[in-house]
């Protein structure tokens, strides 16, 4: 059974005097216990909005977020029920996700104190344990956030979430504000936490290359919808959606071969006025008649691997040739 499940989640932002924007236009996702699921997409694809909905920070306009099969209510003025505290979130910017005026020890003990997880005299020992768990010196307990580097702060933010003994962590771009060496440290930490503590994670990122290193499964989002999802290596080596393929082709390689990454033509359209049919079709090298006319469903192609693309509809595709042939086009 899945631990966290997003069912047809839609999030619509109302804008004063302008058309509303469907930032997330019906996305489904499941995360099993102890599993790391990557959610990848470029700016404006709605991945951060989906992350906030998944963590319960905002209410979906339609669809449901289920934890253990029970719907999650979005935050209200009241305290969250203990059951939902098992769902935690880590934010992108470690500079703004820690309170600058409170000592680390006090912030890490928040979850223990608020949820009365243990007697006050035991809390300090637990905080020290949490600091060790994320590889920080234990004297950090009496320091303030500004005394730490970006990578260290992100580890502090992670350990604050760990204090709540979460079953699921939603991580919104936890690596993108960090330097390469700090990025690797935090990425490895996340994998270890998942393997050792069995914490399931939804990892939101724009960086497919690093998500590939961490995630067990990946979903790719484009303009508010999931266009492809599958096990990491399968999706990486045999992408079924042209957008996934474009994303992979655009990643620069630090291999010294001087291979130029491939650009994707055109621009991300305004989410308030998405193209008809497949949302990717105006930029797709392989679009054909049907693509601009009808919306493709996310259909299962191979056990866990699913894509929303008319090329994989046996009755519709004009040429059954594998996608890879189109990869050579550059511009």
């Amino acid at each position: 059974m899945s631990l966290l499940e997003l069912q047809d989640v839609e999030v619509t932002y109302q804008r004063r005097g302008r058309a509303p924007v469907r930032a997330v236009a019906g996305a489904s996702l499941t995360i099993g216990p102890g599993e790391i699921v990557g959610l990848v997409g470029e700016s404006g694809c709605g991945k951060s909005t989906l992350a906030r909905a998944a963590a319960g920070l905002l209410a979906p306009s339609s669809g449901r977020v289920l934890l253990h099969g029970q719907p999650i209510a979005a935050l209200s003025r009241r305290a969250r029920p203990a059951r939902e505290v098992k769902l935690q979130m880590v934010f992108q910017d470690p500079y703004s996700s820690l309170n600058p005026r409170r000592r680390i020890g006090s912030q890490l003990a928040d979850a223990l104190r608020i949820n009365k997880l243990m007697a006050p005299e035991l809390q300090r020992a637990r905080v020290i344990e949490l600091l060790e768990q994320v590889g920080l010196p234990t004297d950090a307990i009496d320091s303030y956030p500004h005394q730490f580097s970006g990578g260290q702060r992100q580890r502090l933010a992670i350990s604050r979430a760990l204090a709540a003994q979460p079953e699921v962590l939603v991580l919104d771009e936890p690596l993108s504000a960090l330097d390469a060496s700090a990025q690797a440290q935090v990425a490895n930490l996340l994998v270890n936490l998942c393997r050792e503590l069995g914490i399931a994670m939804l990892l939101i990122s724009h960086d497919l290359a690093i998500v590939r290193q961490i995630a067990d499964r990946i979903s790719v989002m484009y303009l508010g919808v999931v266009v492809e999802s599958g096990p990491t290596e399968q999706l990486w080596t045999d992408p079924k959606h042209p957008y996934t393929e474009a994303l992979i082709g655009a990643i620069p390689h630090a291999d010294g071969l001087g291979v130029k990454p491939r650009a994707l033509r055109g621009e991300v359209p305004d989410p308030a006025e998405p193209p008809a049919g497949c949302r990717f079709h105006p930029r797709c090298e392989r679009a054909f008649g049907k693509c601009s006319a009808a919306v493709p469903d996310l259909i299962s192609l191979d056990r866990d691997h699913a894509a929303a693309c008319w090329l994989h509809d046996p009755e519709q595709a004009p040429q059954p040739s594998p996608l890879k042939d189109a990869a050579g086009d550059s511009h």
Partner: peptide
């Protein structure tokens, strides 16, 4: 609206608790 307040809310703090502490 700060993220540390939201983080605190997700950890189970009520709005009133975050008002006083954060």
């Amino acid at each position: 609206q700060r993220e540390y307040v939201q983080a605190s809310r997700l950890l189970g703090a009520s709005a009133r608790q975050t008002l006083l502490r954060d």
